[in-house]
Design a protein around this nucleic acid. Sequence first.
RNA 1: GGUCCUGUGGCCGAGUGGCUAGGCUAAGCUCUGCAAAAGCUUCUACAGCGGUUCGAAUCCGCUCGGGACCUCCA
Length: 502
Amino acid sequence: MALSIYNSFSRKKELFEPITAGYAGMYVCGPTVSGESHLGHARPYITFDIVNRYLQFKKLKVRYVRNITDAGHFEEEGREAEDKVSKKAQLERMEPMELVQKYTNLFHWAMKQFNCIEPSIEPTATGHIVEQIGMIEDIIAKGYAYAINGSVYFDVKKYAANYDYGKLSGRVLEDLIDAGNREVVSRDLEGQNEKRDTADFALWKSAPPEHIMRWKSPWGEGFPGWHIECSAMATKYLGANFDIHGGGMDLLFPHHESEIAQSTICNHSAPAKYWMHNNMITINGRKMGKSYNNVIKLTELFSGSHPLLSQPFHPMTIRFFILQSHYRSPLDFSNDALLASEKAFKRLWEAFEVLKNLSSENNEIASDKELDEKINNWLNEFELFMDDDFSSPKVIANMFELSPLINSFKDGIIPIKSISHHTLHLLKEKFKFFLEDIFGLISIDSNNNQILNPVMELLLDLRKEAKLKKDFATSDKIRNQLTAMGFVIKDEKDGGTSWGIG
RNA sequence: GGUCCUGUGGCCGAGUGGCUAGGCUAAGCUCUGCAAAAGCUUCUACAGCGGUUCGAAUCCGCUCGGGACCUCCA
């Protein structure tokens, strides 16, 4: 009954105990809306959607905060400071906020396709400049940041002297400084090295004249550093201490490490009790990311317009594909893997539909005690597996154990009275609950077409008549032509006929 | 170079030392007018070497391979 979560901070599975009984606060690093979301982005948002749903199932009132990074991320380390968002905006001849709005809308659309529940609060970085400035002022006042040439940097060395810097990501300060020095030397000799130390990170950056996105601050016009936005917004909406902070593994360092440092100075404690990080989606064994030029955008996935894709893939196929592996394992993408997921999901969903229509004989006692018990065990494990750090693949495996049984009940291969009506009821209830409410999966096909339904009924009726007259030429013609059009015709064991698309 | 993760059958993927996850593909069988669907069965996996153990895919060591982070990145 107790939920355990793998905490990246302790590198152990820990029992989840909410800070305030009955409530859970969760902050998840949201997208940078300077471009279209790709398959890699789908993973954290689907993963934490499941977490959100499951926490609610555990009777917790969840406040789920997921930000929109619409100020762009800024390059540092001696290279010309450049806002990605404003750079791209010039290329596309759009206002920065227009661009940001476009990709925000697209992101929301994609989340809807995936049937992700909206976060409780979705704050934007540009909407919280005041809070960020306030936090920076606080850090300066406490002596852990310094302003220079209109920019403000966090003093990592000083922080590390008094606190444990690098604990989350397993880093040692000296290594960082060494690495930083190497970078500067190899990358850019004439970079304006205004930072006291290479390990320091920016809280506020002075904006060069061509920079479009800029705000007034005590240090001059500029824009906030990357890490401060999450700290400011998380603190504002979840308080100094909240339960879960989530994001992709690639954010461990420097992003989350820096968040911890900032919050520790301002709020005297690390922000989150549990840190959760999902692993990457890889493609040919390599992380999918802009830098590798190997991304498959979500729109391409849904439409099938990509050289690596043989066909369009339904958002639910993607969701199922992601759920079939554990969120902390790397997941390798391929067209074949998606095809396999598509087929598997279809089969599972069909069993679910069959299950809905099963009816028991109201027998209190199962005629096959062993089977009855087996089914109850599989069902009980649904929750046990999810309690064990959200092991969705195991739950799905159990569902696949149950599917042939469900089909056998329907076909009469196994009599329905083998299990008690109570077990059947539980089977229906849990299957539906975990599939729809926890996993957030919805039907993939659109059989409820108002215009098509009567037409299909007519055709199948004609075919049935032909079959009765043993006029197989006619019945096969109807079936074959429908098949050619993309319909699947299934003759059921009970004499009826069902149909589907694809 | 540093830190960390990882290597499972044709493919994708679970695996808490002992009791063959699961899915996809393929083959066979049952059912069926034929097919599809469904059901059943089969395809004998744990990178290599050594160690601990009564017993290891699972723990330890070494070797080889892959990856992530150290720079924007989910």
